[in-house]
Amino acid sequence: MTHAHATGTTRRRCIGIVAAVSAAAAAPGLLHRAEAGAVTPPVTTWQGVALGADAQLRIVHPDRKLAEQLVQQAVAEVQRLEQVFSLYRDDSALVRLNDAGILRDAPGDLTRLLATTLQFCAATGGAFDPTVQPLWELYASAIGAGRPIPRGRSLQAVLARVDWRDVHLDGGDIRLGRPGMRLTLNGIAQGYITDRVTDALRDAGLDHVLVDMGEVRALAPPQAKPWRVGLAGDDEARTPLETLALRAGAVSTSSGSGTVLDARSGLNHIFDPRTGLSATRWRSVSVQAASATTADALSTAFCLMDAQAIRRVAAREDARVWALAHGASGLRRLA
């Protein structure tokens, strides 16, 4: 989970999308090298910026013109959804909602994702909460101005604006029930966009797909080898501590070390909506689920939850969970 306009240390992300038709995808290695004696279809590549990160999209397809069309469609879809969910575009639907406190006839993607978000809020007992954006703004403002980390009354005043239960959906209308309440969907929107791009490529006939937008979603046909996806810890190099064979589904890892606002206090970007403080329970949490939307939301929420609570939610969501505990060198399987 990240927020716009970070004032602390934000690790540089690289978004990658690799997709192929099954005839070109007998093994993931075909996306990188030709098998002996095999004829590898051409690779169409796009490089640019998406979701505020360096991005690369590669499509392996015998029809280069069609591949170029698919590249442009995928890029256009990411840009369209950024226009809905972004916190750093003044004209995005989410910014307009935050500024006015109400948005009528909101884009369908926003109402759908917000409805899903509120379901995860309820499922996690409020650990997942999109109304924490005022906390980010409070801390970012103080740190940017060189002031002490807010505590006491100033923190409590902002916490009074944080409560997912006061976000109201009525058909296509969205209303924020408290003055100064503001939303961030950065703990789930990357997963949602990952799912949309993956589904679009699948619907176009590509059945061997790996989309990595911070959250990973994979598709692999029966005749292909599964994708290998590493679960990283919280070190700067993001060294994989375990590797999964992924044929279908998604993986997301969340860690407070992903965006550190203040190194001295350990303040990071994953806020506990009950206390206003940062996540410290786990160094990192990885979730495997059917969709990137689910994996993204749960990995964020689980950073704030104990093992027993994680297991309860994971069982309902049919998710697998790994956590890196303080003082540990390896991941612990929780569910």
Score class of each variant (00 low, 15 high):
L169H: 15
D170F: 14
R151M: 05
A250Q: 01
D63M: 09
Q156P: 01
Q56L: 13
N268E: 09
H326V: 09
E68F: 08
H61Y: 02
A218C: 12
D99S: 14
D272A: 13
R58G: 02
D91I: 08
I188P: 00
G249Q: 09
A142C: 11
L244K: 09
Q56S: 12
L31K: 03
G152I: 02
T253S: 09
S86N: 10
S299C: 10
P107L: 03
T117N: 07
A301Y: 01
A314F: 15
V60F: 04
G177N: 02
A26C: 07
V167G: 08
G187E: 06
A106K: 05
V229S: 01
M305F: 06
D203F: 04
A115P: 00
R12D: 01
Y88V: 00
Q133H: 04
L97Q: 09
D63Y: 03
A6N: 14
D63H: 07
A23I: 11
A307E: 10
C303H: 04
A93L: 05
V39A: 11
T280V: 11
P222N: 08
V313H: 07
T294M: 12
D234P: 02
A250S: 11
A309F: 01
P28K: 14
S254T: 10
H269Y: 04
I174M: 14
G8S: 03
S252E: 14
L304H: 04
T124F: 00
A127R: 02
G330Q: 15
G230H: 06
A55P: 02
R228L: 06
H3Q: 10
H208D: 10
R80Q: 08
D173G: 07
G16Y: 15
S154V: 06
L118F: 08
V313I: 14
P150T: 00
N268S: 13
N186E: 05
R104H: 12
A220Q: 08
Q73L: 06
A323R: 02
V60E: 01
S257Q: 14
Q56W: 13
D91W: 05
D129C: 09
D207Q: 13
L135C: 02
R320W: 02
A292Q: 04
L201A: 12
A290V: 10
V229I: 11
G249M: 07
D129H: 05
R311I: 15
A319T: 06
A27E: 11
A34W: 00
T253N: 13
R165G: 08
R104F: 12
R112K: 13
V287E: 04
V60M: 13
V71I: 10
P150I: 02
A250P: 00
A20E: 02
I310E: 07
V197F: 08
D91S: 06
F85R: 10
L110Y: 10
S255A: 14
A26D: 07
T239Q: 13
A127L: 09
P226T: 03
A55E: 08
G29M: 15
T294R: 12
L324T: 01
R178L: 03
G214M: 06
T293G: 05
T243D: 03
D199E: 04
T194N: 12
G327P: 00
L334P: 03
I174N: 08
R311M: 15
L261H: 09
A323S: 05
G8D: 05
P222T: 13
A55W: 13
F128P: 03
A325T: 03
D163E: 11
G249C: 09
A106I: 09
T253K: 14
L51K: 01
